[in-house]
């Protein structure tokens, strides 16, 4: 009931006006929240405390790490763009801010990046790298390229083809001779183009290439002729003998000594890699196929039938695909012209 004096007083208290006095601080409101805090240190996230500007190489390294590990795709793309301009605007004879050996492993995973602008920017950047440095890292690059070629997303597959094209431009020999470079890459091509056959399957012909193969639409729809062309390039690199492979005047110039080049210190790094002295043992897929004959043999044994069948169907399609198939068939014919089937 609240009849007692105490309760009456309590009720009244709510409506009493607080008394303000001169010289005293104002009383705190009822719902006052103390927001002050104490901290032992202050961390500034974005600010650099150094007075001098960053050196260009450290700036380069910073953007490199941004490009490789940033979560936002625009940031990745911008960082890559920065790196590209940095590298292109450099004087010709000046060494690179960071060696390729550091740059390449960081940027290669971007082949599988989900954003197309990042991938195209990556290709632009890669084209600026000195070709001589790329050859030694062809195996690593091919790992990611293959992953891209078999990727679920069609756009990534297409862009991975451009990367492979670039690789074939700058380091043709290394691409086809490095461990796994021949066999595994060919296998990736086969799955990508839908020419692969299951090792355990029966004679089950599948016409469903709706999503992956040549009948895809849009940007990926034009992919099939392109795939054929890149495959032709690849096969050409591996199978067709380069015209200038034999120096014209080898025996005559230095007559008493023949084939000097063979006995000199090798110019390429890790010249005995094919012996695989220190690594784990490789299987057929991961083997190095140094000789053209080896590559021909492997191609004949595993892929030739599938490729020729694919070419014949593609030629029937005519149009762009048919023209590309004609190029491919010419390469295959040239490459395998001098091949004699050895029973092995």
């Amino acid at each position: 009931m609240g009849s007692s004096a105490r309760k009456k007083k309590e009720k009244k208290k709510d409506f009493q006006k607080p008394k303000l006095r001169v010289g005293k601080t104002k009383a705190k409101a009822d719902n006052f929240t103390d927001t002050s805090f104490k901290s032992k240190s202050i961390v500034v996230n974005q600010q650099s405390l150094s007075t001098s500007a960053k050196s260009s190489s450290s700036q380069f390294a910073h953007y490199l790490s941004l490009a490789s590990s940033s979560k936002s795709d625009t940031q990745r793309r911008d960082a890559l763009a920065y790196l590209t301009t940095q590298l292109s605007s450099q004087p010709v004879n000046e060494p690179m801010p960071l060696p390729t050996a550091i740059i390449l492993p960081k940027l290669l995973p971007l082949i599988l990046d989900g954003t197309s602008s990042v991938r195209s920017q990556l290709l632009k950047f890669l084209r600026l790298l000195p070709p001589s440095d790329v050859g030694d890292r062809a195996e690593q690059s091919l790992l990611y390229t293959r992953a891209g070629m078999t990727h679920l997303a069609a756009e990534i597959r297409v862009d991975a083809l451009s990367i492979l094209e670039w690789l074939l431009e700058v380091a043709k020999d290394d691409v086809v001779t490095c461990p796994g470079g021949w066999m595994k890459t060919l296998k990736s091509f086969m799955t990508m183009m839908g020419w692969a056959t299951s090792s355990g399957s029966t004679k089950w012909t599948s016409a469903s290439k709706s999503s992956f193969g040549k009948f895809a639409f849009g940007k990926a729809g034009k992919a099939f002729p392109r795939q054929l062309l890149v495959l032709a390039q690849f096969l050409k690199a591996g199978l067709v003998e380069p015209e200038d492979s034999l120096p014209t005047s080898e025996g005559t110039a230095t007559f008493p000594i023949c084939q000097v080049g063979m006995h000199m210190i090798p110019t390429r790094s890790n010249a005995f890699a094919h012996l695989n002295l220190f690594g784990t043992s490789r299987d057929e897929d991961g083997e190095m196929y140094i000789d053209r004959e080896d590559r021909q043999r492997v191609f004949h044994k595993n892929f030739r039938a599938a490729v020729e069948e694919g070419i014949s169907t593609a030629q029937k399609e005519a149009g762009e695909a048919g023209r590309a198939a004609a190029v491919l068939s010419k390469v295959v014919r040239d490459g395998m012209a001098d091949y004699t089937d050895i029973d092995d």
């Binding site: 690593q140 790992l143 990611y144 992953a147 078999t150 679920l152 796994g180």
Partner: peptide, 29 residues
């Protein structure tokens, strides 16, 4: 059997991812 091809694609993807992983197990993201 109808989806053999799709499976082979995925399996190829798996193989390439595996290769990447085996090449550098700690850095593969």
């Amino acid at each position: 059997r109808s989806y053999t091809e799709e499976f082979l694609n995925q399996y190829g993807q798996y193989q390439s991812q595996r290769d990447i992983f085996m090449a550098s197990p700690n850095t593969a993201s």
